[in-house]
């Protein structure tokens, strides 16, 4: 079987990433049959966005608008021949990082062997500082890590026509929680 491997464009040193060190997730791939690795830092994002922008069209403009404020997009995915070939505890480095870096888990969905989590990093002005998705299924694990400034409506566009009303309402809860925290701080 052919391995489908998308090579990283650059090997990023930790400092340049200014974020999570993906090498800590390498253990997940020990028994994988396929893996996907996409690493797009600021320079490559600008290059890609410029190229797409030059091509024109509404889609290209939407992508360009989405990507303009981003520092990096990182995708890691591993596929396994059967269930039981990875240890979900090997995802803890990422979860710990997100927790200590003040990301908020806005969605956690568990269905039999499948677990999905979505984390957002709130920023001032109603924007987001990042989105992370951790999807652990029986025979596949996918991590999406988007670092940088984006608007909630860009995130909704990313999900396509189906939209993410759940994320939207979670964002609403998040904003309210922030307001309440600010209010409590003032009252203290």
């Amino acid at each position: 079987m052919k391995n489908i491997l998308i090579m990283a464009l650059l090997a990023l040193p930790l400092a340049a990433q200014d974020s999570f060190d993906f090498k800590t997730l390498d253990k997940l791939g020990t028994n994988s049959k396929n893996h996907t690795n996409i690493t797009l830092d600021g320079d490559m994002l600008k290059l890609a966005s410029g190229f797409l922008g030059a091509a024109g069209g509404k889609d290209a403009t939407d992508v360009k608008n989405l990507v303009d404020g981003l520092k990096g997009i990182y995708i890691r995915s591993w596929e396994f021949r059967r269930k039981g070939l990875y240890n979900s505890a090997d995802l803890e480095p990422l979860r710990s990082y997100l927790k200590q870096a003040k990301w908020t888990r806005v969605v956690e969905s568990k269905d039999e062997d499948d677990l999905s989590e979505i984390y957002l990093l709130p920023q001032s002005g109603g924007k987001l500082g990042g989105v992370a998705i951790v999807a652990a299924e029986a025979t596949q694990v996918t991590v999406v890590y988007i670092n940088g400034s984006l608007r909630p409506e860009d995130l909704a566009k990313l999900s396509g026509n189906m939209g993410i009303p759940d994320i939207g309402s979670q964002l609403g809860n998040l904003k309210n929680a922030e307001k309440n925290t600010e209010k409590h701080k003032e009252e203290d």
């Binding site: 890609a48 969905s109 999905s116 979505i118 998705i133 990313l158």
Partner: peptide, 20 residues
């Protein structure tokens, strides 16, 4: 880079839709 960007966005979209 643009090909990888579009693939990354496709993967992100798929995962968001699956979660929903």
């Amino acid at each position: 880079a643009s090909r990888q960007l579009l693939l990354a966005l496709d993967i992100t979209r798929l995962q968001l839709q699956k979660t929903k």
